[in-house]
Nucleic acid binder design. Structure first.
Lengths: 136, 136
DNA sequence: TCATTCTGTAATTATTTTTATTACAGTACA
DNA sequence: TGTACTGTAATAAAAATAATTACAGAATGA
């Protein structure tokens, strides 16, 4: 997928883990990542939908982890932000009159799926707690 | 990396393998992939630089595999087209004043590198001959 | 030798994807 | 009821990718 969102999501999660339940505002998170608070909020929507974080609106609001850091496998984080296939582009419209062109998408998809499975497995050897513990 | 180039490269290589040494023109290749011949030539430059194919200029020219299809591991094809890190974006400039921001790139890079290694290993379980044999 | 058919490559443009920005309604608190 | 947040949409900007055009140079063969 090659997605800057993976880095952002993991960055947010790491900060939330370090905060130990204290609510962090999107502005604060954005400050550490060095991006716009609105971007952080967008990513938080996704992290919330995946059950990783919870947010509180209004004054003194902010976000915190919704589950324990060792329940968040990095592979799950990857899956939550991935939008396109690992190696493919969305548009691939080969010539169906050619025997290779006709079938290559099927074979590529099989290859991508198998590969992605292994990738997720590998990422999941670490969970958020493991990752976060690498920081002081 | 998430690169349409992987699909294009593999498509080209598969066609060349099927051609059994016969020279195929960039126009012919482009016809099967359904892209512009100039794009094919660009990708051929890369495939040539990696020793996978050879081309002949001039009339009746074209390209063919430079080595046997079972010497071309799919992981090597991936490596030849990859330009950005597997999961990262080029620009990631977190706030160095934050202990997490300061070190996250190092940890992300380690994670990406380990993951990519596994990915290449997985892809390399198949070589071009294996892949190509899936087509009639 | 010279027209033809290719590749090699650069320059340019177009398209798509990603990221950033702005804005403001809604919510919670004190 | 003012303040400090989130939620979300709309828009714009930037970056990455893909496509197109163009033409010089190479090999062939009539």
């Amino acid at each position: 997928m090659n997605n800057g969102r993976f880095a952002i999501a993991l960055h947010i999660l790491t900060l939330l883990d370090k905060a130990n339940g204290e609510l962090l505002s999107s502005e604060y998170l954005a400050g550490s990542i060095n991006i716009n608070p609105a971007m952080v909020r967008k990513e938080l929507i996704n992290l919330r939908n995946n059950g990783f974080v919870q947010s509180k609106e209004g004054k003194n609001g902010g976000s915190s982890l919704a589950i324990s850091a060792n329940e968040i496998a990095l592979g799950a984080v990857y899956q939550s932000v991935k939008q396109t296939a690992l190696l493919g582009s969305q548009k691939n419209t080969p010539n169906p009159k050619c025997p290779v062109g006709e079938n290559i998408n099927e074979h590529l998809n099989n290859l991508y799926n198998d590969t992605e499975l292994v990738l997720i497995e590998q990422l999941s050897k670490q969970n958020l707690a493991d990752f976060s513990s690498k920081f002081n």
